[in-house]
């Protein structure tokens, strides 16, 4: 670039009126070794911009993928456990109740049987009573 035009573009540059392309021209001019002595002071400015754009991000990018969340597993496990306990308990209670019912029936049945046998024997008492009446009458 001609010195005259460099100065014009530089003026525009300071007013914020240059295009991206013109700014690239300025950077190129000031990176060369044909820089006019009176413009030497600008050299580090454009060198700084060129250097600044070479800086790289070297950090890691720690991306979390949506892996299976094990916390939810424990929630589900507790759910299943509660469910099991509740219905298991109900089932067990029902079994116990049936067992108790059957035992009671059996016991009552035995009582009834023995009672029958008892009343058979009581029939003799009636006989005895009859006999006693006969004796009293006579």
């Amino acid at each position: 670039m001609e010195l005259a035009s460099v100065k014009i573009v530089l003026g525009k540059y300071l007013e914020g009126e240059t295009t991206v392309a013109e700014e690239a021209q300025l950077r190129e001019y000031f990176s060369g070794d044909q820089v006019a002595p009176e413009l030497e002071a600008y050299r580090p400015l454009f060198a700084y911009f060129s250097e600044a754009r070479d800086e790289r991000f070297t950090g890691q990018v720690p991306l979390k993928t949506r892996r299976f969340d094990y916390r939810w597993l424990s929630v589900a496990a507790v759910g299943v456990l509660m469910f099991g306990l509740y219905f298991g308990n109900r089932y067990r209670e029902q079994r116990e109740a049936e067992f108790a019912y059957n035992e009671t029936r059996k016991a009552l049945g035995m009582i009834a049987q023995n009672l029958d046998r008892g009343t058979e024997k009581v029939a003799y008492i009636a006989e005895f009573d009859e006999a006693k009446q006969k004796i009293y009458k006579n």
């Binding site: 600044a52 754009r53 800086e55 790289r56 991000f57 950090g59 990018v61």
Partner: peptide, 8 residues
Amino acid sequence: PFKDKLYR
């Protein structure tokens, strides 16, 4: 393409 720009 632009992560360096973010950093800078």
